[in-house]
Computed example of a mutant assay.
Amino acid sequence: MNRSTKILLTISLVILALVSMITYVNLSSAPYSSARSQSNKIANTSAGIVNPDYFGNYSRTDQYYAVGGLTQKKQYRYVIINAKTGKTQTVNKGNAPMRESIINGVSERYDPTKILHIDLGLYKKKPTWEVAFKNKNGTIGYNLVDFKTGKSVQVINNI
């Protein structure tokens, strides 16, 4: 094989690898993108959310998708959607603590190295935040926090 053939073969292999990686990333993110898009449509239809800025995927005993955002009347609300049945529950933000204050409370209580996610769903039929975090010893913790009061409902730590 001469030098130009080797260069052409190398370039072809690099392009093939890049195309394969891009295809893999697109295919692996498709279910998430589809769930988010469908949830935004449901939130608009059922609760009038026109400017969604939050999407969460809560999995406990049941799986829920949650969308948060402003309505046309500039009211902030969340819609919690049961992923299996499609039933929705609308929750107005009202005087409930903001997501940031829930995260700050978990950070103060457990001093994690990183907050992994905060997702809204139903726990015992009540709106509940699930905050997942990474501890300093490398383990994972979950803190379920009541949506309205901001009080801890359940803690699973050092998994």
Rank of each mutant, 00 (worst) to 15 (best):
S46W: 05
V19G: 09
L70A: 05
V25M: 04
S33N: 08
A43D: 06
Y110H: 12
R60H: 14
E108V: 04
L116C: 15
R60T: 11
S29Q: 10
N82M: 10
A96S: 06
Y110K: 07
V67A: 00
T85A: 14
Y78D: 01
V19Y: 06
A35W: 01
A30K: 03
F55D: 00
L16W: 12
V14Y: 02
G56S: 07
P112L: 02
P52A: 05
N92C: 14
G68D: 02
V25F: 03
I103Q: 01
T90R: 07
L9I: 07
L122Y: 02
V14T: 08
Y110I: 04
Q63E: 10
I102L: 05
P127D: 07
D62A: 12
R77Q: 14
L8K: 12
D119K: 04
T88P: 02
L120Q: 03
T88L: 08
Q63F: 08
Y64W: 08
V79N: 00
T90C: 07
V106Y: 01
F55S: 00
V67N: 00
M98C: 15
I7Q: 04
P127K: 02
A83P: 01
A17S: 11
A66S: 08
S33Q: 07
N51R: 14
H117V: 15
M98A: 15
Q89V: 05
A83N: 08
I22D: 10
A35S: 03
V106K: 00
I103S: 02
G68H: 00
K125G: 14
T88Q: 13
Q72V: 08
M98Y: 12
Q38S: 06
N51E: 14
T113W: 14
V19I: 11
R77Y: 10
P97Q: 10
S107L: 11
I15P: 00
K124N: 13
N51A: 12
Y110F: 15
Q38Y: 03
P52Q: 07
L13K: 09
S37T: 04
T23I: 11
T71M: 12
G69M: 05
